[in-house]
Write a protein that binds this DNA or RNA. Sequence first.
RNA 1: GGCCCCGUGGUCAAGUGGUUAAGACACCGCCCUCUCACGGCGGUAUCAUGGGUUCGAAUCCCGUCGGGGUCACCA
Length: 543
Amino acid sequence: MDNKKLADLLFPDVKLTVEQIEKKYPKRKLKPGAEVTRFAPSPTGFMHLGGFFQVLIDYSIAKHSDGVFFLRIEDTDQKREVSGASAVIMDILTGYGFTPDEYELKGGVTVGEYGPYYQTERKEIYRAYAKKLVSEGKAFPCFCKKTDGLADVELKRQKNFAQGLLEEKDPCRNLSMEQIEQNIKEGKKFAIRIKSNGDGKRKIKFNDGSRGEIEILQNSKDAILLKNDSLPTYHFAHAIDDTLMGTTVVVRGEEWLPSYPLHAEIFEALGFKQPKYIHTPLIYKFNEKGNRRKLSKRKDPEMDMRYFEKEGYDKTAVVEYLLNLINSNFEIWRKNNPNADFREFPFDGFKITTVTPIFDFNKLNDISKDVISKLSAEQCYEYLLNWAKNYSIENVEYLEKQREYVTKVLNIDREKPKPRKDIYKWSMFFELFDYMFGAPKSFEIDESERKNYEKVLRNYKNYLVLTTKEDWFNNVKKMAGELGYATDNADFKKNPNKYLGNVAKVCEYIRIAITGRKNSPDLYEIMTLLGEKEVLRRICAIV
RNA sequence: GGCCCCGUGGUCAAGUGGUUAAGACACCGCCCUCUCACGGCGGUAUCAUGGGUUCGAAUCCCGUCGGGGUCACCA
């Protein structure tokens, strides 16, 4: 077989040589130890939580080594491409503060010298390398009928499993030059497969950045390199792009672990050196049976990063939660550095989890409460307004008009040493403080308490004083005593039957009347903000 | 089915041959408190399992079990 002739037959139009290509991608001039990382999503229309997880690691590695973090869009599966998808990804990256050093906006700017950053724009590069491999006898054309879609594949697999065999070497590798010429003449489309040297028995070793040494069976499949539309598969593109673009560390999901041997063989055929790898676990959830299951696009809205924004989660909280999931050292570090930016979290000794974590909203909420409690009322207002502009438009007008009042409401139990921590997403603000913006919800008071409740309210009209917190409370206390409630907690505990209840009970009644709830922040602050007139109005509406 | 990854409380986990097996979230209780919170203190609960090696195993070795991934002209 004349491989050179075969290569020209298959790729008559490819004139670009790999030498010419490689000249355009010189080695990056970076200081020793600098790492180059990349985020390489396919544009499917959303930003995957798992992908974002990897961005955190990519960004950290690059920043802490004075390296480069770039974005490459893997749009080689044209069936799945969703328009505008890469904009969604860029929005999330920049929105969360992980703007890549190099990227390309479709129809817009390109930042960086190692582009194009869209794989479809690199088609000629892949073809040139494919031609080279064919001319060296390391790859061959395959004219078989294309298996299309998961259903086809599933069928093929089941058949193979039933027979206890897996098709390893493709029959097309034995085609004669005459047969190939005939096929080409007939206009048959072809894919390019690697001519695997593997025997399916030998093992190879490699070092995973988070799992250590892994021993795995070498590749023995004649995998597709170039599809019959001349676009590369992930495997081929990974080898070429990450080499040309100078990637030094590849962070990817653990679903890629089994294809490592294939990648090793492709790199070898191409004469390339492989980068370092870090395989990250997928993020899971429990299914109905209590087993772990992968987060799915259809069932789990939280797998799309935009979900968190929509829900009103603070971005910092989301990042901190994920950091916490990646590496529990983060939690200790955060405890010791309560006010540091999460970007300062030292990457050295970063122990990336190898366990498939379960997404835990409890923990996210807790971290979020903490983050939000540290903000000033002014910051809260800005974040809230910003969020409302995108996801709660009906509240924007009010927020803007009543800026001062809203800020004061936000400041209740805030900006003090032990701030209140009960808001974990912006949407809760409107729910939790609804009584500050309109009439309180009606509250079903228990029939047995109704009489006492109303009596307290009727009397309180004469004891309402808002001059100072002390005066306010002394008056509540005074009234409580006169109505038969305990004003001394210790005494109340000793003789609970002597009293109708304690001051706490009286406060509860007033709180219910004012807010329509049994729990709310500091009553005095609420009443002061509402104003005497409004407070009286609310009480009078009941008795 | 083959190959691979993973297995410490409900969740995230510290731990690398000798620990009363940290910590955080959640849950429960108590305390603090003028109410609601915050906070403080305490509690329930974990080394998947069997066999080795060893004076001694969560830790090393082998098997088993369980969960997950992968075996596409998808990434």
